[in-house]
Design a protein around this nucleic acid. Structure first.
Lengths: 173, 173
DNA sequence: GACGGGATCGCCGGGATAATTA
DNA sequence: TCTAATTATCCCGGCGATCCCG
């Protein structure tokens, strides 16, 4: 790897997580990881990247959430758990890609999200997994409200939502 | 893509140019470009990134450490203990032989390194040994941060690393 | 694994600081 | 005794999951 001067670029948190999670060996740098993921030779820079289908319809950040907070459905929910589940559902639908990248949040022993129930069951004692509607994901549910807020906050932060919105959403749980 | 909560990563110049050259439209962000190049669509998320032949693993003196200091993995660590463990891991991998020779560092009664947990447990009261990843060694962990720095400094000195690097590594703990 | 929600309390990891020893 | 080095107790904050309550 070249010792050349490094350039700084900005990436959103979800992408950052994705990159970090692809570390192959201890102490690997961002450049190394990206080169591998991009299938670039360490030395040569191949010209044309794979052509990919255009991104799906872009929804403006937080729009769906804002609507949800105002909506009758949300207001009608009586329990923290129901609000929690709806929020996650909306978060997923608003941006499945970022959600997927961000959902590797975990506690000391439990993992919080998985795409199947069994994985969550296996990660703790009575995790009470529930499916997130409209998504392939499951979440752990046996937590106090503080932790539910916490999980949502972490998730949203990793999905690069603005602070203020994170605040309001967590507050609403 | 939102501009909120961006993370900064460092990439080498060649990679930087490669990314920049793949801009599709004016004002496109690094995240957007990378997402496209990495094929991070909802559809491809589940599968692992393409596996590529690993880069040759020869590491020159201090090179691996330098990489580590810059690496995403290291930056993502939140506790002194985690940084400590990663540093030791990289030190071992960079030169197992020297590590082995240098690792007979000890305190007044505790020994700091051993190739099995029991030896460390036996050398003190609550030494909290942890295994050094990628190596056959264990370290004592029940120390304040000052001593962790100390241990690393002694180890690196015995492995003949330059002072400046020792400084920087210890500082980073 | 079948009542569901979630507060409360116990446990654990990190590591500063107090205690101990040379 | 005073200081400096080393040990390891112990506190704090975070996490888990039991268990109580509606």
């Amino acid at each position: 790897m070249s010792k050349n001067r490094m350039k700084t670029i900005e990436v959103d948190e979800a992408l950052y997580h994705y990159i970090a999670s692809n570390t192959r060996h201890i102490g690997e740098s961002a450049s190394e990881i990206l080169r591998r993921l991009l299938q670039l030779d360490a030395s040569t820079l191949v010209s044309d990247p794979p052509v990919v289908a255009p991104a799906a319809a872009v929804i403006k950040k937080g729009q769906g959430l804002e609507q949800m907070l105002k909506g009758e459905e949300f207001k009608s929910l009586e329990s923290a758990i129901d609000r929690f589940m709806l929020i996650l559902s909306v978060l997923y639908q608003e941006n499945p890609t970022d959600f997927a990248l961000a959902s590797d949040i975990k506690g000391r022993k439990r993992i919080y999200f998985a795409d199947d129930e069994a994985a969550l069951l296996a990660s703790g004692n009575t995790t009470k997994p529930k499916a997130i509607e409209g998504s392939p994901y499951w979440v752990i549910t046996n937590t106090n409200t503080g932790r539910k807020r916490n999980i949502v906050a972490q998730l949203m932060a990793a999905m690069a939502y603005p602070h203020g919105l994170i605040e309001r959403v967590c507050q609403s749980i």
